[in-house]
Design a protein around this nucleic acid. Structure first.
Lengths: 187, 187
DNA sequence: CGCCGAGTTGAACTGAATCAAGAAACGTGG
DNA sequence: CCACGTTTCTTGATTCAGTTCAACTCGGCG
């Protein structure tokens, strides 16, 4: 199974532990453009994307700010809300049709209690998320919009292909008009 | 002891576990302006600030970018380097005289193995760091320099008092001149 | 007393925002 | 599968916040 493969890159999981894990994941399908989490919800799941692509955004005043994307074969969650059990102001939207596997908050905490590797996986997942967030935080301070676009272009070419320009623009912190001009300047 | 108090806000620690923890922390003192970590080092410690204030910065081209501060009674580390055992490009500098307690990578991993709460604390620490990084990431995309300054002013007034303007300017992503003008505009 | 780094202020310049209009792409219903 | 309407993207003109370069002030310290 995909999730086990992914997790075992981080830490070996014995069959006995895996038996506890695997029964807790449920499969879920979402249509393109549907909202998986909307502002005001409490996040109840930690999810693993089997196929598809997601966009994370918040509403500020009258505009949307896209602050993250997530891709196939990675975990995601409105993690702050998931941890604190408080409502989120995040929206998570399917940019493509989505197939995912998810585990509920209560089930995950059962695993934390019942298996030795549970806490370790939780720690590694949180560390992983932290590393990504820290890198991006520094990138946003360090680079200009044009540089951020070029980095994106190099590191995630599939992203540039498939994601509407207006979302990418917001992600690097400029208006769609500005990104359109950056693009025409580059080629 | 301060560290136990702080940790027990997150998770109860029994005396037996604490006995394992406490022997591993060593006290360390740094002078004002000294570098606790410099670019090129591998971070070997997770540290807890007893007194003082730190600045995190990286060098980009010919200029310094301040991307974080840390205060009394909180943990810090060049965490990415600490986790990956790879060299860091972060610099961590004492803005004031510093007293801290720190635990080495090997000792922390001994604790992960020897105590039940070890992994849990590691997870909670990583979650805590992630939450802060995620919030800041969104703030940087959402607000203008002036708004970021006002938020800082409201949430961390002691920071504004004690930290040289040029570091604050870099933290909100503008030049010292620009922040000086923002300030004079506000009052 | 003089030096030096930090902060302020001014002027010219630049990249991005905003407002606006037109072109291209997309999906939805017939 | 086409036609229409909506959304997305592009391009232009104007405005604005922030950069850069430079000069000057202030305070601390040798």
């Amino acid at each position: 199974m995909l999730i086990r493969e992914y997790l075992e890159k981080l830490v070996p999981i014995c069959d006995k532990d895996w038996a506890v894990f695997s029964t807790k994941f449920e499969k879920q399908v979402f249509k393109k453009n549907s909202l998986i989490i909307r502002s005001g919800d409490v996040e109840n799941y930690l999810s693993f994307i089997e196929t598809g692509m997601l966009r994370f955004w918040i509403e500020v005043g009258d505009k949307e700010i896209t602050f993250d994307f997530a891709f196939e074969k990675s975990f995601f969650s409105a993690y702050l809300s998931f941890l604190t059990r408080d409502t989120t102001n995040w929206n998570i939207q399917a940019i493509t049709p989505i197939v995912l596997w998810r585990i509920s908050y209560t089930d995950l905490h059962l695993i934390y209690e019942q298996t030795v590797v549970g806490e370790k996986i939780g720690r590694l997942a949180a560390e992983d998320l932290f590393i990504k967030a820290a890198k991006r935080k520094i990138d946003l301070l360090t680079y200009t919009a044009e540089e951020l676009y070029l980095i994106l272009f190099k590191e995630q070419p599939h992203l540039i292909q498939n994601i509407p320009l207006k979302y990418l623009a917001s992600y690097i912190g400029v208006t769609p008009q500005a990104l359109s001009r950056i693009r025409s300047r580059i080629y």
